[in-house]
């Protein structure tokens, strides 16, 4: 059995009286691509935010390589360097060029050398098809290009795991494709990273989910309702709730 990257142990998350995540446990293995699906408001985005320590949890624990992730703890920034996160909204820093956006954290947080970081950044930009945009400002990029840069900005930190939170939800339909291709490419792995990138992905793109996932977790009402391989989940869902959820997609297609 492969090594666990993330261990989520009986966590509960409440906003006031609303329980968003209810006593949920989940682990992610090295190299695994885990896709979280479920109706909106089921807690999947909140779960990602908790894993990155952006939200406090009211019970249970989250560990990255056995190290606890605790919201508000001063040393949290150390754990976060190992967790890459890309958000739904384009979150590039508007006052910096693409290159500056990418190199800020490796230079200032990891104290890596400028030459090495710049070279790596160029390589990654090339990999996502944006090697010509290093000196552009975010305002000069399309939404799809911005999200690809955001992915590179997280990747360059050499994270143990990437959290992708509905990264195509705010994009124009024509741009969804280019971003998802980048993620598929990451999942497959490259010559330098043969195992593929460990990822937790929240998405509404079901075809993409089926293609990219090693395991699908279906969340509803803050609990895991079903958990299976993509083939099983998408073609032979076991629970009634998952069947109903998947039907809404087949109809809309």
């Amino acid at each position: 059995m492969a090594e666990h990257i993330i261990d989520i142990d009986h966590i509960t998350k409440r906003f006031g009286d609303n329980t968003i995540i209810n006593d949920l446990s989940l682990s992610v293995e090295q190299g695994e691509v885990l896709v979280l699906v479920g109706p909106s408001g089921c807690g999947k985005s909140t779960l990602l935010r908790c894993i990155n320590g952006l939200e406090p949890i009211q019970g249970g624990s989250i560990k990255l390589h056995g190290e606890p992730v605790e919201h508000g703890k001063p040393s949290l920034y150390k754990v976060r360097q190992k967790i890459g996160m890309v958000f739904q909204s384009y979150d590039l820093f508007p006052h910096m060029t693409v290159m500056k956006n990418i190199t800020l954290a490796p230079l200032k947080v990891q104290n890596r050398s400028k030459d090495e970081v710049t070279e790596k950044a160029m390589a990654l930009l090339k990999r996502v098809g944006l090697d010509g945009k290093a000196d552009s400002y975010p305002s000069e990029l399309s939404g799809g290009q911005k999200q690809r840069v955001a992915i590179v900005r997280s990747l360059i930190m050499n994270p143990d795991i990437m959290l992708l939170d509905e990264i195509t939800a705010a994009l124009d339909p024509e741009m969804v494709h280019e971003v998802l291709n980048v993620v598929l490419d990451l999942a497959k792995g490259s010559e330098t990273n043969s195992g593929g990138t460990t990822m937790m992905i929240v998405t509404h793109e079901m075809a993409f989910a089926e293609a990219v996932a090693d395991r699908v977790v279906f969340l509803d009402g803050g609990v895991i309702v079903e958990e299976d391989t993509p083939q099983e989940f998408f073609h032979h869902p076991k629970t009634e709730r998952a069947q109903r959820f998947l039907q809404t997609f087949t109809y809309s297609r």
Partner: peptide, 16 residues
């Protein structure tokens, strides 16, 4: 807030 959160998730310190 998204700016702050993405900076946080890159591991930048508060003062950074």
């Amino acid at each position: 807030d998204v700016q702050l959160e993405s900076a946080e998730s890159l591991g930048l310190r508060r003062w950074q």
